[in-house]
């Protein structure tokens, strides 16, 4: 489902003396449907950078990133947008939404984007918010005013609302209480069971061993010493 081949990335800081920072060279990995793979390596090894490249958020310097039939390297913006809408989900640690939009709408939005009807989308959003223990009194409010933990759970609900064939999870269980941590882990297992290919970053070693089938250490692709 997800195949990364010979991927390299460097940043050129034009406004700081055109410094070139190589962060990754020759990365390879492959994740099959129904599989969950953890990215590991010390801080700075390029875990987040790789995730962002796979999501199309960072520009790849060379190599290829294939998700389904699409190679993200050199893809048109609209192809990447379609991929994000239909195929590839991303749960980050931070929620970024327009102020004023109700939590329920925020969670239902990915479903509306793929054309599901409003009723079904709302029902699914309610189910997830309930499972993640977001009090019903908050559903009609904008999550921008919520606590950090609540925002994170809203973000997870949004990420799992639609059944993406491929998912990227950036620290999904960080700073969650044990109850909600269990909910998130079961959501990940359910996603695997329906055949999603998942790449995750988990600092929580227990969670990692519970849901991940393999680990890929990025230190081998890093060029940190050259930076």
């Amino acid at each position: 489902m997800i195949t990364v081949e010979n991927l390299s990335k460097s940043f050129t800081l034009h406004n700081q003396g055109s410094a070139v920072i190589d962060v990754m060279r020759g990365a390879n990995l492959s994740v099959a449907a129904g599989e969950c793979v953890a990215l590991t390596g010390q801080s700075g090894a390029g875990k987040s950078t790789l995730m962002r490249m796979i999501y199309g958020n960072y520009f790849a310097s060379s190599g290829s990133i294939r998700i389904g039939d699409l190679d993200l390297v050199g893809a048109e913006p609209r192809q990447i947008l379609a991929l994000r809408r239909d195929t590839l989900g991303y749960v980050s640690q931070f929620l970024r939404v327009v102020p004023r939009v109700a939590t329920l709408e925020v969670v239902a939005e990915p479903l509306l984007a793929v054309g599901q009807d409003r009723e079904a989308a709302r029902a699914r959003a309610e189910e997830l918010l309930r499972r993640l223990n977001i009090p019903q009194t908050l559903w009609s409010l904008s999550p921008t005013t919520f606590s950090g933990g609540e925002q994170q759970r809203v973000n997870i609900a949004r990420g799992f609302a639609y059944d993406y064939p491929a998912m990227l999870l950036d620290e999904p269980t960080a700073s969650l209480d044990p109850v909600n941590r269990e909910v998130v882990l079961s959501l990940i297992k359910e996603a695997k069971a329906r055949g999603a290919a998942i790449i995750g970053i988990f600092h929580d070693a227990e969670a990692r061993s519970e849901v991940c089938d393999r680990e890929i250490d990025l230190s081998g692709f890093g060029v940190g010493a050259a930076a």
Binding site: F11, N15, G56, N57, P77, L81
Partner: peptide, 18 residues
């Protein structure tokens, strides 16, 4: 040119970075 978040988060040109 490019995807909005890509241009804003990983700008390639000197002027865009500025």
């Amino acid at each position: 040119t490019g995807l909005t978040d890509q241009v804003l988060d990983d700008p390639q040109e000197p002027y865009t970075q500025l």
